Amino acid sequence: MARDRSLPRRATIHDVAAVSGISRGTVSRVLNGEPYVSDRAREAVEAAVREVGYVRNTAARNLVTQRSGAIALIVHEPHSLVLEDPNIGNILLGTNAVLSEADYQMVTLILDSVRDSERVAEYLRGGFVDGAIILSARVGDPIALAVAELGIPAAFVGHPPNAPEIPFIGIDNLSAAREITTRLVDTGRTKIGMVAAALDRDSGQDRLAGFIEALGKQFNPSLVVDYPLYAYDTGAEGMRELLRREPAIDGVFAASDAVAAGAMDVLRDAGRSVPGDVGIVGFDDSSWAIRCHPMLSTVRQPAYELGRQAALQVLNQLRGGPRPSGGTLLQTEVVWRDSA
């Protein structure tokens, strides 16, 4: 088939060499950022690149280096929650800041179904990314198994139970949940419930365990309701159910700030004041916490730093560093406001 002559010809490294008067080898060294090139040659090559409109052929370079220049951020959440949850956004920003500085492209892959998991697993096997950061992984996560099978550099944000030996960056959800529940108990509440969420992953399980530990003999299993997602609708539905089970409930630990916001709106609609009738606490210290009225007592977790540290872990492995066993836990802090 004859070449379409209406299409502009792509400038090549030969064009840069011809215009700059510099050898092709030296041009290549400049374009690859290699040392031992004179300032005069570098300036001439850069001027020629601008003049001829040269754009690096990344696909060809990747064929040579066997690298894609991309890292996957794999998020196991519905699309709607990814847009709603400020924590996910902050993890994404922290991850991208590190990868951008290292000249890697972040590729965000959202898993909303079994079909998504199968598609993404096949994508990973195709060699389209050099590493992976896995967020919100569930028990028996097929993506984590695929990453472990491929042996590519990887890190979890959080640490799913029975996961493959992949390093993780996380927080101590159990201790943080225990601490904030204890603060709630210390306000004098006696009928305390929990709107739990995400019990198919470590964060949800550990927050529930910390709640139970803090209450001790005061724990009432009938005052725990649980749902799949850390979402506003979870809090609204859960609070309605807790009020049905125990109209005199006077304290609530919500598994996330979004959950707490939903619960507080239901309490308001039911004519219950916060914190007068019901004290409520959340988890995350996200933008949900300061949008609540009154503002929410919660646990601050370093979402941006979680993303940064996970990206640094993957980059370290890509640069030949060892894949460590176990993980790193970052500090949390109880932020006490007016909701309790």
Rank of each mutant, 00 (worst) to 15 (best):
Asp116Trp: 10
Val335His: 15
Ala146Val: 04
His14Met: 00
Phe211Trp: 05
Val314Asp: 10
Val114His: 09
Pro164Cys: 09
Gln205Gly: 06
Ala254Gln: 07
Val49Ile: 15
Arg9Cys: 04
Ala18Trp: 03
Glu165His: 15
Ala236Pro: 13
Ile192Arg: 02
Ser80Phe: 12
Ile133Thr: 06
Leu135Ile: 08
Gly204His: 11
Gly307Asp: 01
Arg268Pro: 02
Ile13Phe: 10
Asp265Pro: 00
Pro86Cys: 14
Arg189Thr: 10
Val30Ile: 03
Gly251Glu: 07
Val98Met: 03
Val82Tyr: 00
Gly320Phe: 04
Tyr123Leu: 08
Leu315Arg: 11
Ala132Leu: 09
Pro8Arg: 00
Asp206Cys: 13
Gly251Phe: 14
Ile143Ala: 14
Ala102Tyr: 02
Asn220Met: 15
Asn162Phe: 09
Ile280Gln: 01
Asp269Glu: 12
Glu122Pro: 12
Gly282Ser: 04
Leu296Thr: 07
Gly170Tyr: 04
Asp206Ser: 07
Gly188Phe: 01
Leu229Phe: 13
Lys217Ala: 11
Asp172Asn: 13
Phe219Val: 10
Arg244Gln: 01
Asn220Lys: 14
Arg29Glu: 09
Val299Ile: 05
Pro142Thr: 08
Leu145Phe: 15
Ala97Lys: 10
Met106Ile: 12
Val107Phe: 11
Thr182Ala: 04
Arg42Thr: 13
Arg323Val: 12
His79Lys: 04
Val139Asp: 14
Arg272Ile: 06
Pro8Ile: 01
Ala70Gln: 01
Trp336Cys: 08
Gly94Gln: 01
Ala102His: 00
Ala258Ser: 11
Ala198Ile: 11
Glu246Thr: 15
Asp226His: 14
